[in-house]
Amino acid sequence: MHERLHEQLMSMARYVRDPQHNAPPPGIEARRLAVYRQLFFGNVESLLSGSFPVIRASLGAKQWQALIESFYADYRCQTPLFTEVSGEFLSFLEEGAGEALDLPPWVLELAHYEWVEAALLLSDSGEPVHNAGGDLLDGVPVLSPQAWPLAYQWPVSEIGPDYLPQQAPEQPTLLLARRGNDLQVHFSRLAPLAHALLASLQARDCTGREHLHALAEAIGVDSAAILAQGLALLENLREQGVVRGTRN
């Protein structure tokens, strides 16, 4: 009895996920199965439409529908939480769904850009222990966990139905995503030095002086040439709340 019920439920689940490649369970009207299909698929499609509105609008209804159907049929989410489905969709794209469905090459980066906003809004990362007035040059600067430096090959902040680039520009799009005190996520452009410094702060713990020395080596200049500019940048980032201070 239990095995029979299990097989009936699995048969229905397979059909609801992918009716094109799975037979319907016996004994259930097609009309009723269509209701179940629309209920479950419609909820997922609605959730992802709200999470990725620019991708949805840019791909158009037909290609967007095919993408969501592929995700719904083929991908096995690792979480039951609706708030994390957008992250699962991003993982689905990272695993190569774009190539299989012949999606535009900018879809993955645009999906990440749209996902960042929700991820930062829902982030529960606690405030790190720090000295707000610490020496940013000889102390170890602390980056806010709600401030993420981002780098994209495609101009993700400009892509939309009216601008669908065919070729990536020569210069990357460097951004800072930050959740402010107003509990909203704000995006701002970054200069290459600012992005490199923030990425360095995110990657390793060392003094501000050591971060700037490593950056100077990377671009082939003497560290003294960027020390004053780098310190001014760190102080400016502290004023904005992007750098919280230094480690105790």
Score class of each variant (00 low, 15 high):
M1S: 11
M1P: 11
H2D: 07
L5A: 09
L9Y: 00
M10A: 03
M10N: 00
S11F: 00
M12C: 10
A13G: 03
A13V: 11
R14P: 00
V16M: 02
D18K: 00
P19R: 13
Q20T: 09
A23D: 15
A23I: 13
P25M: 04
G27W: 01
I28A: 03
A30F: 07
L33M: 14
V35I: 08
V35F: 07
V35T: 07
R37K: 14
Q38F: 08
V44W: 02
V44P: 01
E45Y: 02
E45F: 01
S46V: 08
L48W: 01
S49V: 02
G50L: 07
S51N: 04
F52V: 11
F52A: 06
F52R: 05
P53E: 15
V54Q: 10
V54S: 03
I55T: 07
R56G: 06
A57E: 09
A57Y: 09
G60K: 08
G60P: 10
A61T: 12
K62D: 13
I68N: 01
I68F: 15
Y72P: 06
D74A: 10
D74Q: 08
Y75Q: 03
Y75L: 01
Y75I: 00
Q78Y: 14
P80D: 00
P80K: 00
L81T: 11
L81K: 15
F82K: 08
E84V: 03
V85I: 12
F89Q: 14
L90F: 05
L90R: 02
L90H: 01
F92R: 04
G96Q: 14
A97W: 11
G98I: 07
E99N: 15
E99D: 12
A100P: 11
A100H: 12
L101V: 12
L101Q: 10
P104V: 12
V107H: 04
L108Y: 03
L110S: 04
Y113P: 00
V116A: 06
A118H: 12
A119D: 14
A119H: 11
L121P: 02
S123T: 11
S123M: 08
S125T: 15
S125K: 10
G126V: 09
V129E: 14
G133T: 13
G134V: 04
S144N: 12
S144C: 01
P145F: 00
Q146E: 08
W148Q: 06
Y152Q: 01
W154M: 03
V156I: 05
V156G: 00
E158A: 07
D162S: 15
L164W: 13
A168F: 08
A168P: 11
E170Q: 06
E170Y: 04
P172F: 02
T173C: 09
L176E: 04
L176D: 05
R179M: 03
L183G: 14
L183P: 08
L183Y: 12
V185Q: 14
H186Q: 10
H186K: 13
R189E: 15
A194D: 06
A196R: 09
S200D: 11
T207H: 12
T207Y: 06
G208W: 05
R209Q: 09
L215E: 04
V221N: 03
S223D: 03
A224V: 05
A224F: 05
L227P: 05
A228M: 10
A228W: 02
Q229R: 15
A232G: 14
A232T: 07
L234Q: 12
L234S: 10
R238I: 05
R238V: 04
V243W: 01
G245F: 04
T246W: 09
R247K: 11
